[in-house]
């Protein structure tokens, strides 16, 4: 009977993990800004030199504002993704907000690899594919180049949509974010998500070290996200009026001081 109990428990847990995988994958697909079919139909057209120069000749303020708008649009979809993850809405609202403030941009960076052309080193932005030089007017070449490096390296792993979905959920449900009220509950959710990710990687017969590679990506994502905040702070010092009057309110809530 002891064996029965053990096997029932492990079966229940497998069923639970399968259920979580399905929910997270479905949520990811439902809340991706561009669906699989749309991606296939996309012309993957790059900006021509003249267009690149137009972006480069924009003022720093205008280019920052444009990027803030695009990031905010992407983040709204990430909020919807979070809401549909099993257990997220059961967290207290403080913790929901803490997780989104800390993790939503990181999920946008993960999702970026769906809209990234590795060969051209270009990302879908404002209607066409843009290389790092399109973003020169922002005045943060180092951060842009790191974001592109990250996208290149994530793309090289060729993650499936299921794997991307669970990796995104794993990042979003990080239990070590500051100011969480109920760390334990978030930790439980994250552990379940990690099991689901492991399970999917096994099912997809992925190489042994992939989970370790993804864990390393978590620290890269944190560094990108905090560097974005630093760049924004520096920008605000000079252009506080532009930020106050022209930046999307949600962007300010997420990244403002």
């Amino acid at each position: 009977s002891n064996e029965d109990t053990v096997s029932t428990a492990s079966m229940a847990s497998t069923a639970e993990i399968d259920h979580l995988s399905q929910i997270v994958s479905r949520s990811h697909l439902e809340t991706c800004q561009y669906l699989g079919e749309e991606l296939q139909q996309m012309s993957w057209q790059s900006f021509v030199q003249e267009e690149v120069e137009t972006y480069q000749s924009k003022t720093q303020e205008v280019m920052w504002q444009l990027c803030a708008v695009k990031i905010t649009e992407a983040i709204q979809y990430v909020v919807e993704f979070a809401k549909r993850i099993d257990g997220f809405m059961e967290l207290c609202q403080n913790d929901q907000i803490v997780l989104l403030k800390a993790g939503s941009l990181e999920v946008v960076f993960i999702r970026m690899c769906r809209l990234f052309d590795s060969q051209k080193n270009a990302v879908y932005f404002d209607g066409k594919f843009a290389g790092p030089d399109v973003f020169r007017a922002l005045g943060c070449d180092d951060l842009i180049s790191s974001v592109f490096d990250f996208a290149q390296s994530l793309c090289s792993l060729h993650l499936t949509e299921d794997e991307l979905a669970l990796f995104s959920a794993f990042v979003l449900l990080s239990a070590d974010r500051s100011w969480l009220q109920d760390k334990l509950q978030v930790e439980k959710l994250q552990q379940k998500t990690q099991l689901a990710l492991q399970h999917v990687l096994q099912k997809n017969q992925r190489e042994e070290g992939l989970l370790t590679k993804l864990r390393y990506k978590v620290s890269v994502l944190r560094s990108l996200s905090s560097r974005h905040t630093e760049k924004l702070s520096a920008f605000r010092v000079v252009h506080s009026d532009i930020v106050r009057t022209h930046f999307p309110p949600l962007y300010k809530e997420l990244f403002g001081a």
Partner: peptide, 20 residues
């Protein structure tokens, strides 16, 4: 709450502002 007004709204809305 005032500080995260929009996030609160997005989290509480059953219908999202995003046209999914």
């Amino acid at each position: 709450k005032e500080k995260h007004k929009i996030l609160h709204q997005l989290l509480q809305n059953s219908t999202s502002p995003v046209d999914l």
